[in-house]
Nucleic acid binder design. Structure first.
Lengths: 377, 377
DNA sequence: TTGTAGGCGTTATCAC
DNA sequence: GTGATAACGCCTACAA
């Protein structure tokens, strides 16, 4: 180990190995090691070891214009969906020697712009955006600057960015099919914000899913949330219940909205699922411990992060290459928040309807799981 | 804005302002601006503005040996307790122009060591540790290296580090007092890991709280968790229930353990709170939505983060100064997981006991809150 | 008040 | 294969 209090520098190593610093640099750098004789390379490596040499990443960055740092911009780390995603991202980045700088926008465009500028100033080598909106000045700017970008969870069209997201249409179609198979016909939708891809595609999945079952997706039974928050879920849930229309089930565009919706049901004295079936999207951590455990659409959070990191690394390290649009398959998880429609309220006997569906084999596309085993751990 | 594709450098600004780069540097740097004439300072600032000049932080770091980066080492971002803490930390750091590098140890000492080394290699200006154990080689090393460190949430003695944590004893004493006032006498404890300060001090709070009420903290009613996980809570809960001993209430050293304990109750067919009162610690996000909503001990998560950041900034920017040990006050939050002991099981009528307490004014120290208003949002 | 010079630690580009 | 040199962009004694 280095005895002096100043950490060993490349010069020190070079001196100890009796070579020029440039040679030491070559010997220590995997990609240039072959330029130097095996013997001296050995000597240098040894000296480095002995002195406890650690390359100074700042100096290296200055020279190579690579910070080995990635900017990750998300709406809010407090949303339980993001921690596992971020961990996947960080773990995969770490394998490549990169670290993440996390920024929260709180869905504020100004904050997002600000974070982007700050991170650019810090010379990050690329960005992962989990905040894309359909029209986004920041993405525009990123495209112009030709900085490597990957979109995660949310997508945007018209940009030359790779992306990883979930097949939202399929997920919501499966959710609707599940409700339909339980006999529900009057199904409401708390739609996500329509300036965000997930909001749009889940809305589309809802309409398609209804249509596929011969049900009508009445606009009177759709309320649009301004954001994916519990508060908005509460507001929209209230509005749906006020409008009434004999709803027996609600498809929320994500779990946070579903949680808010639970609150609205409570206020009305309605119990879930007997009084109203509710289904969410994301299967975020702890959502299986609510009262009742929420039926929802799951996707692999951690993998969303790792895949995003991999796509970005391809861009950052590999240079040019095809833009990739990656979708992860969702999976319906049925829990306690959905049940057959009460026989007096539905358009027929739920159980027999259920049987009929099962017989005709019209089960929803997409995998289906129950997780009784998991729900108590 | 800069027209060339290469970002403007200090030289460019100097050239545009017709001064020497050194002068430009002085003019742009707040702390040296007074060394330059107001007129030229003006000219330089203007030129910088016009060229869209952004100082290169990498170059600056190389020169000043300051990365304006802080290493934050936590057990696991997936623990819902940490996101709000991390946000507080990041927000406060951002005010000082610093950013955080987050590292997760998963309670693995090797990973912690590794993260510490990686971050040191990246020349972070300081560390926040939320992973301190009573005997910690990494902290030892940090102390030797004289790198600024602040301990957060968990503390360790014998190190010259400032710390922010919660008055754990007081919190648990309040929890015990609450249970006692409900008539509980045979109270069990799922203790946290005893190599961590929170585990020890909450255990101590439990013993003291029992004693203060004239109750016995029987070791037979205490089980020690190996970590703050749901799994360990489940295991310890099972063990407590197997041992039996006529428990009517359980104090868990944190919310995760309490959640696991819920699972153990389920297995036994016990309902909470009638069959068993349970109380946790942390009031982590979403814990108020469990079935039943968990009574727990709350502390301000976000502020824990901001205070840690402030303490670290004092060290990093201010240099020497007194070590500060800061405690945040906890607050008991009573929800649906605690109720009076059933009259046939307890050592007397719960309600009358409750009344007696109320009359004699022996309420627990520490603030007490119920959050009916909050629980449904 | 401003300019000069040197260096932070590394690597790219020449020569030899 | 190795050495010399310069440069990445900035800051700061020191000199003028």
């Amino acid at each position: 180990m280095g005895k002096s209090d100043r950490p060993a520098t490349l010069r020190d190593v070079a001196a100890a190995a009796r070579v020029h610093p440039a040679t030491a640099s070559r010997a220590l750098n995997p990609s240039t090691r072959l330029l130097v004789s095996e013997e001296t390379a050995q000597r240098v490596t040894e000296a480095a070891e002995r002195l406890g040499y650690r390359p100074n990443p700042v100096a290296r960055s200055l020279r190579t214009r690579r910070s080995h740092t990635i900017g990750v911009i998300i709406p809010d780390l407090n949303n339980p969906l993001f921690p596992p995603i971020v961990r996947g991202l960080e773990d995969r980045l770490a394998e490549h020697g990169y670290v993440a700088l996390i920024g929260n926008t709180d869905a504020d465009e100004r904050r997002e712009r600000n974070l982007f500028d700050q991170m650019r100033a810090r010379h990050v080598d690329g960005f992962v955006f989990a905040t894309a909106t359909l029209q986004s000045p920041v993405l525009e700017e990123a495209a112009e600057a030709e900085v490597p970008v990957v979109l995660m969870n949310r997508t945007a069209q018209g940009y030359p960015f790779s992306s990883v997201s979930v097949d939202n249409e399929q997920g919501v179609r499966a959710a609707v099919a599940h409700l339909a198979s339980l006999g529900h016909a009057r199904i409401g939708h708390i739609a996500g914000p329509q300036e965000v891809s997930t909001g749009v595609s889940r809305y589309r999945g809802f309409r398609d899913g209804m249509e596929a079952r011969g049900l009508t997706a009445d606009e009177g039974r759709i309320v649009y949330a301004g954001g994916y928050s519990i508060e908005e879920g509460l507001r929209c849930g209230r509005e749906l219940l006020e409008r009434d229309g004999g709803l027996t089930a609600i498809v929320a565009a994500n779990d946070m909205l579903a949680v808010g919706c639970y609150g609205a049901l409570d206020e009305r004295g309605l119990t879930c699922p007997d009084g109203m079936s509710v289904i969410g999207f994301n299967d975020m951590p702890f959502i299986d411990r609510l009262r009742p455990p929420l039926s929802t659409v799951r996707f692999p959070h951690y993998q969303l992060g790792t895949e995003a990191a991999t796509l970005l690394m391809e861009r950052v390290e590999g240079g040019e290459g095809p833009v990739k649009i990656l979708y992860l398959a969702p999976e319906l998880v049925t829990r306690g928040s959905t049940c057959p429609v009460p026989s007096d309220a539905g358009a027929g006997d739920a159980v027999s309807l259920h049987r009929r569906r099962a017989l005709t084999g019209t089960e929803p596309s997409g995998a289906l799981t129950t997780d009784e085993a998991r729900s108590n751990l």
